[in-house]
Design a protein around this nucleic acid. Sequence first.
DNA 1: TAACAAGGTCACAAGGTCAG
DNA 2: CTGACCTTGTGACCTTGTTA
Lengths: 500, 500
Amino acid sequence: MDLSSTGSHLPCHLPLSLLTNLQSSPTASSSSFSSPPASSSLLSPSSSSAFRPVIPRATVQIPTPAIDTFYMTAIQSLVVSTTSDDQYSELGPLEGTTSITKDENASTSAGTILCQVCSDKASGFHYGVFACEGCKGFFRRSIQQKIQYRACTRVEDCLILRNNRNRCQCCRLKKCLAVGMSRDAVRFGRVPKREKARMFEEMQKTNVQSQRDQIAIQYENLSEVMHKMNHAFAVLQNTLEKCTGPIYTDRCPISSNFIVIPLKAAIDFANSIPAFLSITQAHRVHLLQNSVFDVMLLASAASSTSSLSFPPGGIAYDQNSSNPMIPQIIQSISERIRQLPPQSIPILTAIAVCQADIMPDCQQPLLLSDQLWSVLGKVGGVQPLLVGPSLFKDVRSLRQWHNDRLRHVSQNFSPNQLLGIPQPVYLPPAFLSPPPSATSSSSTSQKSEFIERHQSIASLLERPRRISSGPQEPLNLSLPRHQMKVEEVEVDEEVQIKQE
Amino acid sequence: MDLSSTGSHLPCHLPLSLLTNLQSSPTASSSSFSSPPASSSLLSPSSSSAFRPVIPRATVQIPTPAIDTFYMTAIQSLVVSTTSDDQYSELGPLEGTTSITKDENASTSAGTILCQVCSDKASGFHYGVFACEGCKGFFRRSIQQKIQYRACTRVEDCLILRNNRNRCQCCRLKKCLAVGMSRDAVRFGRVPKREKARMFEEMQKTNVQSQRDQIAIQYENLSEVMHKMNHAFAVLQNTLEKCTGPIYTDRCPISSNFIVIPLKAAIDFANSIPAFLSITQAHRVHLLQNSVFDVMLLASAASSTSSLSFPPGGIAYDQNSSNPMIPQIIQSISERIRQLPPQSIPILTAIAVCQADIMPDCQQPLLLSDQLWSVLGKVGGVQPLLVGPSLFKDVRSLRQWHNDRLRHVSQNFSPNQLLGIPQPVYLPPAFLSPPPSATSSSSTSQKSEFIERHQSIASLLERPRRISSGPQEPLNLSLPRHQMKVEEVEVDEEVQIKQE
DNA sequence: TAACAAGGTCACAAGGTCAG
DNA sequence: CTGACCTTGTGACCTTGTTA
Ligand SMILES: [Zn+2]
Ligand SMILES: [Zn+2]
Ligand SMILES: [Zn+2]
Ligand SMILES: [Zn+2]
């Protein structure tokens, strides 16, 4: 009934990941959590386990590019160039990225304890709870002078976060009391060792909750949120319509920007999702790499255009290998989407991004998708909640088929064929081995940029490297988790609350 | 959705054993608590933090339930669901007080020696008294540097408990000296065996005193205390007036919530008694089961309504068996109550709850009623002190008669008559044997919920097994049930209320 | 010796301070 | 009024010395 039992033997700061990892039956589940597709053969497994080694354990640093991740550079660079915090990452691979924005994320997922009131960094255990200096002082003042704060201007439901904790004293004090701050709960002196384990657990729960709040507060003004997402989504649709169509030209399809521009629009749409940018850049890249196809498909399908061109971006497949079922699936998806309330489609697309893959080392996407599901219910009613899961399942099937196709195609090409030569029928495949320059961490030179770009963009719509391993994938996922758990337990002894 | 429905009538986070009430046989003695601990040392040198309870830990010791007490489920569940500690412990850090007290109880009834200064767990014999590490260090510092503490901000009468021992150094040092701490009283070396006995006696006295202090400290702010109780009492009266009246309708009286709602109000009133919640939950349930009648009677009688409807809840008795004396008694009670100062009536009612029954294994209710009597004197003067005892005597007589009546009634009913059929005259009796579902740990079905509810509520106003504390109330009532399956499986089962 | 208390130690929290 | 920083304790452990 509670997460505690599972948390006792699994990393307790990943409850959502655990839930998500549960396999649900192929029939649509009403769970708000995305479930990985249950059908074994069609769908691509998550590549998270392959992705994991790239990211240093439990930190959110930008990974140093590994050899086989070269082809992800395109989305990476697009994400980097459209986001504000990437300047730092170009300056230095590690330390530069850990500046302000990063720091917040890092403390969230790493071992820093957060204030239970405002989610700022806690300076210690004050009045019975972990609290920052600000909330500690605020509470002390509140109880010393019997301060009567002005009543809340809202319904006394203000979310208290670091940024806005001074806006409503009433709600701040209320939150202080709600989390258990009390003069009776003071603890002096050295912290008993036995308590440290408990404190650590407490911290994990608090951190998850604070992440939830961080997300929720960005959805307070729902109409503004919807406007922002709708706009970005419309731009994306518009872009797709313009850039879609047969590309039987004599120019290289990639250089014509027919792909880059929609890709940019897709990323812009993702960035328009409130709180999406609070996900680590590396994880954003990963999510986008796994969901561009879905995004474009959904956006295309939702367009009022009478015919849905497929695949998105206008790339045609080898006719010989076409699966006769595919048009049918597309048709079905398209119909179901258009039956939904128009406002719900961007939200569904946003969910598709957040649920693109399961990343055990990053739970924010799941929390964000929780929030989005709730928004979906508010905006679109029950219908999208019911249709959504099965829709995602089919989209994923399609994505899988698409990737397989591309992989097959890519094996029939040599790199030399690609460059400079128009490829009217097939999507240009990724290189199976990256050029030497990719292994260097320095920024690519101007000269190689063109080549790289071709390779990168082409492989975008291909699958990340790991080839489908079938239904046994969940086991693969759970194994590394278990190992993580062991590590953490050992670390428990030396929990540092990190004073400064 | 499914969670909420089961949770409504069967708190699913509790083991079933907690729902069915404890049944201590009339002959059961409290010997299990008075036996000395098995360990050779009375002290726990490795004692954990004084503030350990600050972090919620919902472990409660409850006696093993017997099977024929099924009908007590209703109050039990109401208590459980209206009490914050168990309810919110899942959510986490929300409280401090209840778990503090709970922990206190545990250490009190176990063989741990408490600090004679602050009632924290003592770490040994320091400076001539049993003292915790904190008071030991405090006293050492006080005598090493001859510290002159700032004078007490009150009248130097601060109660020193572990939660507030740091608020007034002056009074803490005073208390240290008062209990006999002295540099000259140091004792070195191993403790002679014969002294352990003396230590043990000391411990008992200290424990009682510390419990007294624990209670007294919650009555420090008398006006706040009175306000809280008065409010809850007013709500109860209001509820009773609304829900009282003949229920000769075509609907089953119980399903109309005419009883559940006042019951809830009565429990809320009990919970508003300061320090009442520091009584073990199981004991709270027992007290309430033995006092709802009194509470409702007193609350009704105190209402300004011209006519007192009886019995509370509007349930009518068989007219044939009415005792002509009854109206007279009711009238007398009502008159005497209304002569009292209005503020004293809630206190009297609170005393009725605490003195509902004598529980040899739990002395807190008696200590609490001592405190309440003292409050009664402060608030209402001598008059209530004089009237109270005789009043209680009559109320108990009435309760007794009421119970006899119900018991008689219940024997003339078969269970089948009850269900679905309006019972305008008689209070529906309890089943004499519980349905099979009560023994299973799975949640009851919707269908059996109705039955269960009827049984439970009905038996609320019937007599629990033992009536006592009245001088003229003999044992004959203690054997109403044919089959007292007293399977007292050896005690001390630890029940995890499960929090995280 | 083992058991046990005085005294020391220092990680930590309450409360004060004072620019911002 | 806020909160980073500082001062003043506090008390969980540890070391040292005493006694049955
Ligand atoms: Zn804070
Ligand atoms: Zn507010
Ligand atoms: Zn003490
Ligand atoms: Zn004082």
